[in-house]
Design a binder for these strands. Structure first.
Length: 557
RNA sequence: CCCGGGGUAGAGCAGCCUGGUAGCUCGCAAGGCUCAUAACCUUGAGGUCGUUGGUUCAAAUCCAACCCCCGGAACCA
């Protein structure tokens, strides 16, 4: 019955700053989803890795006066360590500069070429004589030929919105050096997107699990029509073009100075990482890629949308028509910080390492999931973080568990049924949470957890068991048994979201829930009699108001 | 310019597809309770649903125009 679930998580740039926007945007949602599926007994493969190629890496290397290789060496282990600390449960977190990845990309390239989805073409590109290299269009500025705007970019004028072609810009110069650039002919491989238009339209029409705005955006792209795009660039850092495997007539000049470009190559990491994982774990990656019963879910931010809704399915189809295509594309909007965009250079950022060290992993996981930017941009503010942590996580959830365990300390519970109305309500909340987890609606999932602890708090206030402890021990035990039932429900629900806290609860009550049971409430009811409350500790610590000012002052304006 | 998203009480959001004079959480105020991390429970105040028009007996919800914010195959989740 176990289903195979492949989870592809967007690949962060190796030198990038993994801030809480990344966490909220795709890392945490993916992890919760993965934990949930393992929990209910599915066979999960979750992969990602550091994106080692692309301009930002070479720029960073130049800045630090070193090589891209050194940058990868320096930052990749940091990412690995960070994800371990954040509890992001990758089955494999690799990187794109491995031999394996290069080989898979080259195989992929050759196959798409053989299947005639790739053609070659000569174009004019901006060339910087002073730097002796071709510049991406966006690295070129000049005067717009239409409106005269002086800061127009190589491919587009931000002032009048005109799309510009190479050569149209007047007084074109490099935006980093300010030196003039000229046009120079260069030959590249292009991916033939128009050829895939029909296929992709059909593919899109079959998707049912995408968020509405994701579908709309994708349809918008298709309606405009896809254009062929170059998949190689004049670079020296990236996956080499496998010229010796290319038929004579399809070779291009100067291929040794060109590389397969990141947007085509990075997504292939999902496949190459699966292959690497299978080699290391003695498993067959094909079970996850050539299998009717497998489900593929991808997690990323909205900037990555078309690469995954159109380009990756298109590439896969060009590679092999039998390979499994993405099913769920769980794409988030952006997280802002105190109303501003995250920006490392402007100092508007919160380092993931720091916030977890300072405030604990689970409170961060909790809050970022609560405000997950699922359908619209969300905002992280320290005031809200402190408020929600204190008022929801601690006062509502933590407090219910704490007051129940404090009252129930030392009690031995008999086998028996809880209050049937309560059982019904708990059962409904559990079913609701499960549904939200399955459909990747994580905000609603957190809300349903809170509705259970709120139910518990209400129950205790109504029943006032503290009066009965002496007067009516039987009634007292009955009420506490019901409360423990709700604590067990919370334990069940909280696991994918806050694994550390779940473990703490298990320690305190002496009971573990290894896997998500088929009949949840029946199982929980059976567990009640096994509960022995030991030492009770607070799960989370309250945050002082001073935190708000202290942290806000660190964010530069 | 174009494509997509958003604009609903002090804050964060749901409702909009399938019209019927607004809902959730937090905050705030009052009361209750004391097992609990000044927590918990109850009640209440607070909104011309971005603007302007249109359709309709009736619009946050449908239509049109406009304004503001975010993203869009450089970098960036």
């Amino acid at each position: 019955m176990a289903k195979k679930i492949f989870i592809g998580v967007a690949w962060p740039y190796v030198s990038g700053d993994i801030h809480i926007g990344h966490l909220a945007g795709y890392l945490l949602p993916a992890d919760i989803f993965a934990r949930f599926h393992r929990y209910i007994g599915n066979d999960v493969l979750m992969v990602s890795g550091s994106d080692c190629f692309g301009t930002p890496i070479t720029v960073e290397a130049d800045k630090q006066n070193t090589t891209p290789e050194e940058i990868v060496k320096k930052y990749h282990p940091k990412n690995v360590e960070l994800f371990k600390k954040l509890g992001i449960s990758f089955d494999l977190y690799t990187k794109t500069d491995t031999e394996n990845h290069k080989k898979v990309v080259q195989d992929f390239f050759i196959k798409a070429l053989e299947r005639e989805y790739i053609f070659k073409k000569k174009t004019d590109q901006y060339y910087s004589g002073s730097e002796k290299r071709f510049l991406p269009d966006r690295y070129v500025v000049g005067t717009c030929p239409r409106c005269g705007y002086e800061d127009a970019r190589g491919d587009q004028c931000d002032n009048c919105g005109s799309v510009l072609h190479p050569g149209e810009l007047k007084d074109a110069k490099g935006n980093l050096t300010g030196k003039p650039v000229t046009l120079k002919q260069t030959e590249h491989y292009f991916f033939n997107w128009p050829q895939l238009q029909k296929f992709l339209e059909k593919y899109i029409s079959k998707q049912k699990k995408w968020r509405p705005w994701v579908m709309n955006e994708t349809k918008g792209w298709l309606e405009k029509g896809l254009n062929a795009r170059a998949i190689t660039r004049d670079l020296d850092w990236g996956v080499e073009i496998p010229t010796d495997r290319i038929p004579e007539g399809m070779r291009i000049e100067g291929a040794e100075n060109k590389r397969i470009y990141v947007w085509f190559e990075a997504v292939i990491g999902y496949l190459s990482a699966s292959i690497e994982w299978s080699g290391k774990n003695n498993k067959d990656w094909k079970d996850f890629w050539y299998n009717e019963k497998v489900e593929h879910a991808y997690f990323m931010g909205k900037d990555n949308l078309v690469f995954h809704t159109l380009f990756w399915p298109g590439e896969l189809h060009a590679y092999d028509e039998k390979i499994h295509l993405p099913d769920s594309l769980i794409i988030n909007q952006f997280l802002n910080l105190e109303g501003n965009k995250f920006s490392r250079s402007r100092g508007i950022t919160i380092d993931s390492n720091y916030i977890v060290d300072a405030y604990g992993l689970d409170p961060v996981r909790f809050y970022l999931t609560l405000i997950n930017p699922e359908n619209a941009d969300a905002n992280f503010s320290w005031a809200d973080f402190v408020g929600k942590t204190n008022d929801l996580l601690i006062s509502n959830l933590g407090n219910f568990i704490n007051r129940t365990l404090t009252l129930a300390k030392g009690l031995k519970f008999d086998k028996g049924k809880p209050d049937s109305k309560l059982e019904q309500e708990v059962s409904e909340i559990i079913a609701m949470s499960k549904k939200h987890l399955e459909s990747a609606e994580f905000r609603k999932y957190v809300e349903s957890i809170l509705s259970l602890s709120q139910l518990g708090n209400k129950y205790l206030s109504e029943k006032e068991p503290w009066f009965l402890k002496e007067k009516n021990a039987i009634k007292f035990k009955e009420i506490m048994s019901n409360s423990i039932f709700m604590v067990l429900g919370l334990l069940l629900l909280v696991k994918p979201l806050m694994p550390e806290s779940a473990e703490k609860i298990e320690k305190m009550i002496g009971v573990e829930i290894g896997s998500w049971p088929k009949k949840e409430t029946d199982y929980l009811i059976k567990l009640i009699s096994e509960v022995r409350v030991g030492e009770v500790k607070h799960l989370f610590n309250k945050l002082e108001d001073e935190v708000i000012e202290k942290e806000r002052s660190k964010i530069k304006k």
